[in-house]
Design a protein around this nucleic acid. Structure first.
Lengths: 125, 125
DNA sequence: CTAAAACCTGACGTTGACGTCAGAGGCAAG
DNA sequence: CTTGCCTCTGACGTCAACGTCAGGTTTTAG
């Protein structure tokens, strides 16, 4: 089943997406504004989402937590949607991977320093 | 020799501290404004730092990278200076440690997802 | 039918660690 | 002495992902 084909699925409103993904309604609107998430509209103008919008929003959160910007995510979304990538996208993917790995290393180093202090302060109360 | 205490050492100006620690002059002034770094003053008002200000600034950078705020760092500085801590400080240390650990886990999960996509896009060029 | 709950579109506010600019001194070299 | 670099104090600007408020429409529960 492709994206455009999308048989008659149960469509949900923004509140259900927000609750389901654990974010605010404002956040979901923001994602649309940034081009991350496209919603159908009801005749009265309310946003209607397919159910897979919920794991998608969770995924956005994960990428945000990893330090990607919404712009970068939009640039990389086709990699997930179609599985097809050009050279530039593959380069971005690796760049982000490397950046995140470096961040993990930094955090681990900070963690070690904190643990060191904790060990000292625990033996010197 | 603790961090704050020190004998008559060669004092350096802000530019040398900034270059030595790999940050901007503005950043060093900001740290003073936030109460992280205290500087002597020359008769003309220029900031004079002891040389151990340089590793200290590096340490601040490391903590910033780990997501601590300048306020939190000021609250925890005594743990490094004196080695003495009260219950509240030990609780903060552990809270930060746990937060960083959780962040590492999140980053690792994001990393795995990216690697997954990279592997796919590499086999489907 | 009505009231509450949910949704809409702007649009301004928040946070943290600085960047940047303006205007005014200070300091060693030639 | 003056040139050029360094430093000073404000003070406003930046960026990203939302929070929040205002004022209005829509959907739903009873």
């Amino acid at each position: 089943m492709t994206v455009t084909e999308a048989a008659a699925e149960r469509l949900v409103r923004i509140g259900e997406v927000a609750r389901g993904a654990g974010v605010s309604v404002r956040a979901v609107r923001y994602y649309e504004q940034q081009g991350l998430l496209i919603a159908e509209r009801s005749p009265s103008g309310q946003r209607l989402y397919r159910q897979d919008a919920i794991p998608l929003v969770r995924f956005f959160q994960q990428m945000f937590a990893a330090g990607l910007t919404s712009r970068r995510i939009t640039e990389l979304l086709p990699c997930w949607d179609s599985g097809h990538t050009d050279a530039e996208q593959r380069a971005m993917l690796r760049a982000e991977r490397d950046r995140i790995q470096a961040k993990v290393d930094d955090l681990q180093a900070a963690l070690d320093r904190l643990d060191e202090v904790i060990a000292i302060t625990d033996t010197h109360p």
